[in-house]
């Protein structure tokens, strides 16, 4: 009984999820979580062979694509995953918005979610430079130059982000550090808060559902989590199909 897992399961068994026409949207946050896991795992694997250097990055990425067994798969999963993660986040955001789940007492849940989507975007921006191909170079140049246009502090900010006057080794060092170290840590913190708040408040119910005299619920454990697992399995298969059939996300060569 002292083992905290027992308490966690007990809590999960008590927790209930409302069952209604819009219940499907309750799975979106879970799909976001799936993408977080997929990005962490594939990102970790990419770091095995990726070299964060101005001269060597492109070559190492080409080796991952062409020489290392299944490197193309890991790389495509990571870049497709990045795009689909953002897409899923947007769906999750709009579904909680239209179900009015952001209203009191869940304001902080909403704001922690906004923080998470912000982090996801910085993930995308910093990750885009890392292959150091032409596309990456100019996308980052444009991105940083836009910041440089801001009045008074623009140039200062741009140089700070760039780690110098030009995109170079300094830029890669910064982007790499942010992408693989600072952001994952921040994401874990923000996601932890997000999930904690969701446990504290319980899942929200739509207005019309609250007024029903007979409400249907299902247990979070084992019923909802079981459905969750099917959703995760299905999305993973769909995801792998997209990755394999498309070959590449956009621009490899």
């Amino acid at each position: 009984m002292a083992f905290p897992l027992t308490a966690a399961i007990k809590f999960a068994t008590k927790k209930e999820v409302p069952v209604h026409k819009q219940s499907i949207w309750y799975y979106m946050g879970g799909i976001c979580m799936l993408f977080v896991v997929l990005q962490l795992v594939t990102g970790l694997l990419l770091m095995v062979h990726y070299v964060p250097s101005f001269d060597g990055a492109y070559q190492s990425v080409m080796a991952i694509n062409n020489k290392i067994p299944f490197g193309w798969l890991i790389r495509s999963m990571h870049s497709w995953g990045a795009n689909l993660f953002i897409a899923t986040l947007v769906i999750h955001m709009f579904s909680t918005y239209f179900m009015k789940a952001y209203r009191s007492p869940r304001e902080l849940t909403w704001f922690s979610g906004l923080g998470l989507i912000g982090l996801a975007m910085v993930f995308g921006f910093t990750g885009y430079l890392l292959p150091m191909d032409e596309m990456a170079f100019f996308a980052s140049k444009v991105g940083v130059d836009v910041a440089g246009e801001a009045p008074f502090i623009g140039e200062l900010v741009a140089n700070f982000v760039r780690g110098g006057e030009e995109i170079g080794q300094g830029t890669i060092n910064r982007f790499f550090l942010i992408h693989v170290c600072a952001l994952p840590a921040a994401l874990m913190g923000a996601l932890g808060l997000h999930l904690l708040l969701i446990q504290i408040h319980g899942i929200s119910e739509p207005e019309y559902f609250k007024k029903l005299s007979i409400k249907k619920y299902e247990k979070f454990f084992p019923d909802f989590i079981m459905n969750d697992m099917f959703v995760w399995g299905g999305v993973t298969l769909l995801f792998l199909a997209i990755v394999c059939l498309s070959g590449s996300c956009s621009y490899w060569y």
């Binding site: 694997l45 095995v48 080796a63 020489k67 290392i68 067994p69 299944f70 490197g71 798969l73 890991i74």
Partner: peptide, 10 residues
């Protein structure tokens, strides 16, 4: 299998 072959030193 794929994972090990990916991790195997080139």
């Amino acid at each position: 299998g794929p994972l090990l072959s990916y991790l195997w030193p080139p």
